[in-house]
Amino acid sequence: MDYLVCLKSFVTSVKHNSFAGASRDLGVSPSQLTKQIHWLESHVGSALFERTTRISRLTDAGEVYYSYSLKILSDINSAQLALDSINCDPHGKIIISSPSSLSRTLLSDLYHDFLVKYPNITLRSRSGGYPPSVIDGQSDVCITPINYRNGQLIKEALFTSTKGLYASQDYVNRHGLPSSIDELAHHQCLINMQTSPDNYWNLSSENKVKVNGCYISESSDELIKLASKGMGIVFVDEILIKNEITEGDLIAIDIGIPLDDTTFYIYHRPVAKSSNIRLFCDQIRGKLLGSVAS
């Protein structure tokens, strides 16, 4: 059997935590996928899954092999992109992960400019903005305010954005305005678990407060939508809610202290200078580097 095909089947099975889900994703029959997994296990000389009647978990050997398999498939994709860009006009697909509110308010215009310049490249935008998505191959580029450190990724600063506290007028009418940090603890707050996993809002280098979360999510878009509907106070970058502020759906809350700005970053794996990913990142950085979005 083809080693790379079997490797991809293995990785897809782990991501879905299901052979049936992986077979649907890959467009192969469950029996064919099972044969590929068996062949791979025979090839490496170790069982990769602990099979039960309901679920298949990775063995210790499978855990190790999975981490290397992700890197192998990602490196192969990067190598192909690099060769494609050397041998002909740039073409292919770039998958970008970012908060959808950021794509809507800022990035869509930059994507347009890039596609005009490179019409044979396809951009696919995924809602998210979680840097590990680049490591596991779900995206090629991640644009996010999350400050993530990993030796497998290139991280470059893009721009800074003013951060603030916001709520709807309906929420303020019902619950009043907090006028100090201490009063925030008595309000309904909408918490982003990626940036505030311990329920603490780092308002500035000198001011941090633990808040009560009536709703906790990894998605800033969900939190913004719920804040607009009067569910609570959200601590978010102004660049993400430009439309909501303009439409009057959200208003700023002043608690009497200056809040720190947020730096947005772009993440990708190491690639050749001529690769599509490098072309994309360089153009985005050229447009945004050092600017203050407000």
Rank of each mutant, 00 (worst) to 15 (best):
L4A: 11
C6F: 04
S9F: 00
F19P: 10
A22M: 03
A22G: 04
S23R: 00
D25M: 07
L26V: 05
G27C: 01
L33R: 01
L33P: 02
T34V: 02
I37Y: 01
H43P: 02
V44P: 08
V44G: 04
V44K: 04
S46H: 15
T52I: 03
R57D: 12
L58T: 14
D60K: 13
D60V: 15
A61M: 06
A61F: 10
A61E: 15
G62R: 07
E63Y: 10
S67R: 07
L70P: 05
N77C: 09
N77V: 10
Q80N: 15
Q80T: 14
L81H: 08
D84R: 07
S85F: 06
I95D: 11
P99F: 10
S100V: 11
S100T: 14
S103T: 11
L106I: 10
S108I: 06
S108F: 14
D109H: 11
P119E: 10
N120L: 09
L123Y: 06
R124I: 14
R124L: 10
S125F: 14
Q138K: 14
V141T: 09
P145I: 11
N150T: 05
A157W: 09
T160D: 13
S161V: 05
T162C: 12
T162W: 11
K163P: 11
G164M: 04
G164T: 00
L165H: 00
Y166S: 00
Q169W: 14
D170A: 03
N173K: 09
N173Q: 12
R174F: 11
G176A: 06
E183D: 02
A185N: 03
A185E: 11
Q188I: 11
I191R: 00
M193Y: 15
M193G: 13
D198Y: 07
Y200C: 14
L203A: 08
S204W: 12
K210G: 11
K210Y: 12
G213A: 01
C214T: 13
Y215V: 08
S217C: 04
S220C: 05
D221K: 03
E222L: 12
L223C: 02
L223G: 09
A227V: 05
G232H: 05
I233R: 06
V234Y: 01
E238W: 03
N243F: 10
N243W: 13
E247G: 05
L250Y: 00
I251L: 05
I255N: 01
L259S: 00
L259Y: 01
D260T: 06
T262W: 13
T263I: 09
I266C: 04
I266Y: 12
V271G: 07
N276D: 08
R278P: 13
L279P: 05
L279A: 09
F280R: 03
Q283E: 13
R285H: 09
G286D: 03
K287A: 15
S291L: 12
